[in-house]
Design a protein around this nucleic acid. Structure first.
Lengths: 286, 286
DNA sequence: TAGTGGTCTAGACCACACA
DNA sequence: GTGTGGTCTAGACCACTAC
């Protein structure tokens, strides 16, 4: 209780800042100040509850905010730990090239989290199922919002579309959930057999007997819905990077709508606008 | 209680699916089935609590999951409503051009919401200040993770950097939080005066007396931290689209590191790889 | 004023990880 | 077994919105 009175004095606090938010800020301040360094365990919930004189549920609300903000990681039965700065795969892209990132999501994971930018490395932590893309299933194309969007993008009624969902696994974890729509069907049963490995973009192009090139791609951010949350093994609402777009045949006919949801803490896409610089110029100073 | 027993039978449910998640799925199913159409109000928490025979806190946990997944919108003192499919600004980009999206974030918002939800008229949340970019402040460049990243990208020690934070407002709401780092300083006091409007990229280039062009830009997704959550008026953990990158002088010297956090429900970036098609070819069908 | 969601408490039991 | 976080309940009071 006495410790919390002080929190209320923080100038940026609105008048009725709830207790759990003040607590969250206090914990954040301790982390920023190094009182709980990266990797350290926070006091347990009962300990924090006793220290601040608040109910354990209030403590949990505060810690939950920090977890959603990716400040701490909660490990059930073990404790709550300060997260080290995020290390994400950088998927490099030449924005002037037609070939964008085919297969680039299969890039290696960060090995030891080095300081520099080298995303080189060992495949730490691979498990039973290997890395790669695996079919989850071929759900019926009903009237869901995504199905409607796909129909709009492909210029065909929903009833004429086929869909296949996959998951991309890297380093023993599901990293991306993918959905593909094509303006024909049905797809070969073997192609959409759950568990089947493959590169679905290539597989679908082969099934159709055409070459595909990019029409457009878009980036957005959404929270994981209940289905994606289960597929990716993350809590609902986890920030996902959405990369969607249309590929077309060489003559410009739309042939594929793809929508990938990638765990935001795992990857980012980098677009280079200049040729690589071998000499690394000094930073500009006026 | 009787209604919930059935939920446990769903094949995809892990053995110990908590009550609140089964409830969330049940509500999601009702929404998908159209029992609660877009824009409709869900039963109040006490009503749901009574209907399912669970505590109100459990109901709140379920609804909170749906809210994080952007399925419903909770309005305090009013009720919980089914969200219509997201309408996001599409910021169009020619990836082959050096000039990427300067000023594009200032693109118009979707005008009349075609749906019935009237966010028109009353500028709720909108206040005195109009649209545009506004300086929030020039925080000291300490050793935060972002500061370290900026120093790395600009190739200068943290001590030699200056930083300015801004917020971009559109349609009466804060849509993006921006941070800029430059490898010199201090910046003119007038330029970083809190509340000052301007286009900070242009202002900083002018202050340095150079022209800037893009070196690289990257897209990622993160949850809002406590500071961004307050700036943008969203809950902590809200999915944000992060667009970051380095701009350099014409001879390639890094001169600016910028990091924008954009409310994921507001915008997406679209990259076009083909010339606009006037004739809109028919979709490909094998 | 009535009804909504937001916060907080006290207490209980459970699932999990680890020694 | 011990301690951790996860779930659930019952009850209370508060803040906000709309009428």
């Amino acid at each position: 209780m006495p410790g919390l009175r002080r929190i209320g004095r923080v100038a940026t606090n609105p008048p009725n800042t709830p207790l759990y938010r003040r607590l969250a800020r206090q914990l954040q301040e301790r982390i920023d100040a190094g009182a709980y360094p990266a990797g350290a365990r926070l006091p347990s919930e009962p300990e924090l509850s006793a220290e601040f004189g608040v109910n354990r549920l209030t403590v949990r609300q505060a810690v939950a905010e920090l977890e959603r903000a990716a400040v701490v990681e909660i490990r059930r039965g073990v404790g709550t730990f300060v997260r080290p700065p995020a290390v994400r795969v950088s998927i490099t892209v030449d924005p002037r090239s037609q070939r964008f990132d085919l297969g680039s999501v299969h890039a290696a994971l960060p090995g030891a989290d080095d300081r520099g930018d080298d995303d080189r490395g060992d495949d730490r932590g691979g498990d039973d199922r290997g890395d790669g893309e695996f079919v989850v299933g071929a759900p019926p194309v009903a009237g869901s919002a995504e199905d409607e969007e796909a129909a709009r993008q492909l210029g065909r009624p929903v009833a004429e579309l086929s869909r296949v969902d996959t998951v991309i696994r890297l380093g023993g974890r599901a990293r991306a959930a993918c959905s593909y729509w094509v303006p024909f069907g049905p797809l070969p049963a073997e192609l959409v057999r759950p568990g089947r490995p493959g590169n679905l973009v290539l597989d679908l192009a082969r099934a159709a007997g055409v070459e595909l090139e990019y029409d457009w791609r878009a980036f957005g951010a959404i929270g994981a819905d209940l289905a994606d949350a289960e597929l990716l093994g993350v809590p609902a609402g986890t920030p996902l990077l959405v990369r969607e777009g249309v590929s077309c045949t060489p003559d410009g006919a739309p042939a594929l709508y793809v929508r990938r949801r990638i765990d935001g803490s795992s990857a980012r896409f980098v677009l280079h606008f200049r040729e690589p610089r071998p000499d690394a110029p000094q930073p500009f100073v006026p």
